[in-house]
Every structure is written in structure tokens, then in C-alpha cells.
């Protein structure tokens, strides 16, 4: 199977280049990550991240034939050859397919991705009704692979100021949580021309999310909450 992989080592290369590989997949190889591991056995200078290799850890987000996705859950069958593999667009490259996620996680931390509740804790736990719990479905499953933010033009344009789809999905996950008491502060933080309102509703985020989540819907709900709060 033919692959064309982005190669860049800032310490040695003046500019990035695409390197072609032709690797025969073993019968047990089903996903693109299996093939990348085979490439690495041939050429150990190739760098990429992977950990759980089953779509849970979110380490191997990359651009595959022009679309962001997780290599570990992208089936080899159906991939157009040569398979063009690039790092997540818009992220600074550390080496080959490994990108610098510092800013991405800074945005994630900026939305306070944890419950804020200063009320005295009950003896056992803060209970939720089944409906309140169901409000978190489609939000809590995010694995922070950055496929969405790496496919979001406004995030490419203002990566330092726009929180991006992943961060905003997480922000809404805590706004929607019945146990959280900081909704007002969270909304006030997001009511900003950059942090939230750079979203141009392009919806690439929802299009590429490997977990089938919808950051664009979460962003819409934050806007609706802000509007309801402002009236």
C-alpha cells in the first residue's frame, strides 16, 4: 500500500517534505495506525504519537487524505492511494506528525474544565436526575484529540485568542452540568469577540469529530444561553 507521509525535523530539515513509502499490510492490519507502525519498523526516524490504538486516548489525531481523523480507527479499506498523511493543520510541528498542543490545552484549561460548586458537599454525592445526566451526553465523551480544532478555519486564523471547538464543547459540558454553580462566570468569560464569537459556523468540527460529537451544536447552545441570559 502506498503512503505519502509529511516529514519534518526542524533540527535538520530546512523545510518539510513528503516522503513516499510502499508497505504491504499484514492480514491482521485493519487500521491506518497498523500500517504506520509497520512504516516505523522500516524507518525508525518517523515520529508520530499513539497510545491506546483504539480511539480512546486521542493521541494519533492527524490529517489523512485531507481530513482530520484518528489513524487508529481509520480503516485501511477504502483509503485512496497514495494515502497522504500530514500533521494536524494549523498546529506547530514538533517533528513529522507530532504537533505542539500547548496552546490547545491552554484554551482547554481557560474554560475551567471542572465542576465549580462552593456549596457544602452532601454526605455521599451530588445527585443528578436521569434527565440532568442525559444533558451531558454528546459532551463528556470528548477525548481532546484536537481533530476538530485542527480543522477549524477560525482556529487557524486566531489560534491564540479563539478557544476553538474542542475548548467550547468542554465549556458547554460544564455549563450544562446541573451540579455546576459557575454558569454566570463561565458565560461572562466566553462573551468575547474572540473567545466564542470567532466561530463562523463552518461546522468542520462536527464533520470530522471521530467520536461523532457536535462542537458546533455546543457553540450554538452557548450563544443561546448568552442571549437568554442577556434578555
Amino acid at each position: 500500500m502506498k503512503l505519502s507521509i509529511y516529514r519534518y525535523d526542524p533540527e535538520r530539515d530546512r523545510r518539510p517534505r513528503m516522503q513516499d513509502y510502499d508497505v504491504a499490510p499484514a492480514p491482521s492490519d485493519r487500521m491506518l495506525l497498523d500500517l504506520l507502525i509497520r512504516v516505523k519498523a522500516l524507518d525508525d526516524s518517523l515520529a508520530f504519537r499513539r497510545s491506546c490504538r483504539e480511539g480512546v486516548c486521542g493521541s494519533d489525531g492527524m490529517n489523512i487524505n485531507g481530513r482530520n481523523g484518528l489513524a487508529c480507527i481509520t480503516p485501511l479499506a477504502g483509503l485512496k492511494e497514495p494515502v497522504e498523511v500530514r500533521p494536524l493543520p494549523g498546529f506547530p510541528v514538533i517533528r513529522d506528525l507530532v504537533v505542539d498542543m500547548t496552546q490547545f490545552f491552554a484554551h482547554y484549561h481557560s474554560v475551567k474544565p471542572y465542576l465549580v460548586n462552593d456549596e457544602p458537599p452532601p454526605e455521599r454525592e451530588r445527585l443528578q436526575s436521569p434527565q440532568e445526566r442525559a444533558a451531558l451526553d454528546g459532551l463528556y465523551e470528548c477525548i481532546l484529540c484536537a481533530c476538530c480544532s485542527g480543522f477549524c478555519p477560525p482556529y487557524w486564523w486566531n489560534p491564540d485568542k479563539y478557544v476553538g471547538p474542542a475548548g467550547l464543547l468542554q465549556a458547554y459540558r460544564f455549563i450544562a452540568d446541573s451540579r455546576d454553580r459557575a454558569t454566570r462566570e463561565r458565560l461572562a468569560f466566553l462573551d468575547d469577540v474572540y473567545r466564542l464569537y470567532r466561530c463562523r459556523t463552518i461546522m468542520n468540527c462536527t464533520e470530522v469529530c471521530p467520536k461523532n460529537l457536535s462542537p458546533s451544536r455546543a457553540i450554538e447552545r452557548i450563544r443561546a444561553k448568552l442571549l437568554a441570559d442577556g434578555l
Partner: peptide, 12 residues
């Protein structure tokens, strides 16, 4: 800039 920031600009 603050006059038409965030929600207000969006609503306008």
C-alpha cells in the same frame, strides 16, 4: 471595541 463585543455584536 467593547461597545460591540461578543453577544452584543452578534445580536446586532
Amino acid at each position: 471595541m467593547r461597545l460591540l463585543s461578543g453577544l452584543r455584536a452578534w445580536t446586532v
